[in-house]
Amino acid sequence: MVGSEARLHRARQARVADRVAAKVADALKADAAFESGSVALSASIAGAAAAAIVDLPVSVRRELSKRQGELARRIRGLVETFGDAAAGGKIALEIPKTVEPSAGEGLGKIVTVEEGARLLGELAVARRLEDWAGPVAGASELQRDFGIARSTLNRWQHAGEVIALLKGTRKHVYPIEQFIDGRPARGIATVAALVSNQRVAWLWLCQPNPMLGGRRPIDLLKQDRADEIIDAAQTYFATQ
């Protein structure tokens, strides 16, 4: 019974962390002072702090409120300590003083616009959304089959907590694999915050990933391994 309560507690904290991280990331994206990598890291730290605070007793929260200056100093000290450790662990590289010049292969054969369009048409293959995204459902189907209220789905979409793919010109559909027990898997919001394009985000989540040993990120999210997937997503997208 205790183990079950602990799992529920961790799951609740994880949901709080995801929601806060997504909202902080949205707020910081418009701030020119933050690079994309700084946005993701700042959002993740804010989410972790909120998750740690949300279930504290009232007396502890009051005491923390009185000591906010000290708390801020400790957080800065912790971050700076990590920065020092990262700098100390860098690998020294031997950089040659001269670099051999290279002309490269050049542009290759230049073709006309018409020929380029023809060649591109031969390479491009029309695919249905379901062929690469997997099973998807609209708001009505999700409410009917999974009990997800349309208002809840809209709230998740506006908060960036769910992947929504445009099908046609106006209708949004939702990959079914992202839902666990009637809500988006933990980590979906953070990955979506790192990638501005929802299609790219879902394509990354549902494709085998060599960085993860050929496993799909969405499968690992369903195993409650969100931290591992978020780290991998930051490696892929935070510097872009």
Rank of each mutant, 00 (worst) to 15 (best):
G3F: 14
H9V: 14
R10S: 11
R10P: 00
R15D: 08
A17C: 11
D18C: 04
V20F: 04
A22D: 08
K23H: 12
D26P: 03
A27P: 03
L28W: 01
D31F: 05
F34S: 01
F34G: 05
S38K: 06
V39L: 00
L41H: 09
S42R: 03
I45E: 03
A46I: 03
A48W: 07
A49F: 10
A51G: 04
I53T: 06
V58I: 12
R62I: 11
E63Y: 15
K66P: 00
R67M: 14
G69F: 05
R73M: 02
I75E: 01
R76Y: 06
T81Y: 08
T81I: 06
A85V: 06
A86C: 06
A87G: 05
G89I: 03
A92H: 10
E94F: 13
I95H: 09
G104C: 02
G106M: 07
G106H: 09
E114V: 07
G121K: 13
E122Q: 11
V125D: 02
R127L: 03
L129I: 15
W132F: 14
G134I: 01
G138P: 12
L142H: 04
Q143H: 13
F146A: 12
F146C: 12
G147Y: 07
G147H: 10
A149H: 15
A149R: 14
S151C: 05
N154W: 05
R155M: 06
A159T: 11
G160P: 12
G168I: 11
T169R: 11
Y174R: 04
P175S: 00
P175G: 00
E177W: 04
E177C: 00
I180W: 03
G182Q: 03
R186L: 02
I188Y: 05
A189W: 05
A189I: 00
T190H: 08
V191C: 01
L203F: 03
L203A: 08
C206A: 05
P210G: 00
M211R: 12
M211H: 09
L212Y: 14
G213D: 08
D219M: 01
A226H: 15
D227M: 02
E228W: 05
I229T: 10
A232I: 13
A233R: 09
T235V: 15
T235R: 05
